[in-house]
Nucleic acid binder design. Sequence first.
DNA 1: AATCTATCCTGTTAGC
DNA 2: TGCTAACAGGATAGAT
Length: 290
Amino acid sequence: MPELPEVETVRRGLRQAMEGEVIERVEQRRADLRFPLPRGFAARLTGRRVIAITRRAKYLLADLDDSSVLIMHLGMSGSFAVTLPDDAPVADGFAPPRRVLHEHVVFHMSGGARIGYRDPRRFGIMDIASADAISAHRLLADLGPEPLGSSFSAGCLNRRLAGKRTSIKAALLDQRIVAGLGNIYVNEALFRARIAPARPAHSLVRRRGPGQELSHLARAVKSVLREAIDAGGSSLRDHARTDGSLGYFQHAFAVYDREHGRCVRVECGGIVRREVQSGRATFWCPRCQR
DNA sequence: AATCTATCCTGTTAGC
DNA sequence: TGCTAACAGGATAGAT
């Protein structure tokens, strides 16, 4: 589920509960998620103080006080739930704590927070790496620029899309070109930029530097991600903030999951279409996206 | 080299 | 109501 805005929302929640605190205990309830958890996973984290929770693309990174880094990816269905000591249910004796289904890892923090990682489909990832080699880690090494960073721009797209014969939609989903977009936000950004998803990527490239289309596109990517972060992400099925509250950017979708809907540009009058493009649902307004 | 396809896994939902 | 099939926000190994 989670794309960059959802991961960023989760990061902000984890900061509250983890930064500056010591991981006092780790419960590991299965040996693997998408990949096997590293050897000695719980032992290597126990007693470590969390210096910072950062994000690279859709990866969450917990910098620890021994120069190691806990790398976490939510895959399609991963979520974190933070329970603070104050949240403890009043002892009325009628609500025994029910074991959460598909909760695979639990961190118990020195401040009393309980942080449960739940991931029904188990496409998520956890790994521990050394801080000095973090950007060379196999999961992070090939990632393109952060779309909200200063290195991502129309000029950057102009260079990276040159000669790409694949569709602009597939290109934006490629984490090597720009890192953090997924299916929802690619659809939304292309709508904002009024670019048809099936356009060959190279057809947007201009020899002498980025043209209007890529300028619009770079701006659209940034604006849709910023607005989604401000809304706490999009809650379709799995995504919730770490306190359980829902994001609400799904109400702002212009095209995603709006097949047969009227184009939100009222003067357009087009009808949103859905088509499967390289195996993924694509939504767009054929009238204003060209 | 670039680009597609199938696949990991489970839960939800659309359709019969 | 109950069953089955299709589909889901990701990423990648392997085929072409």
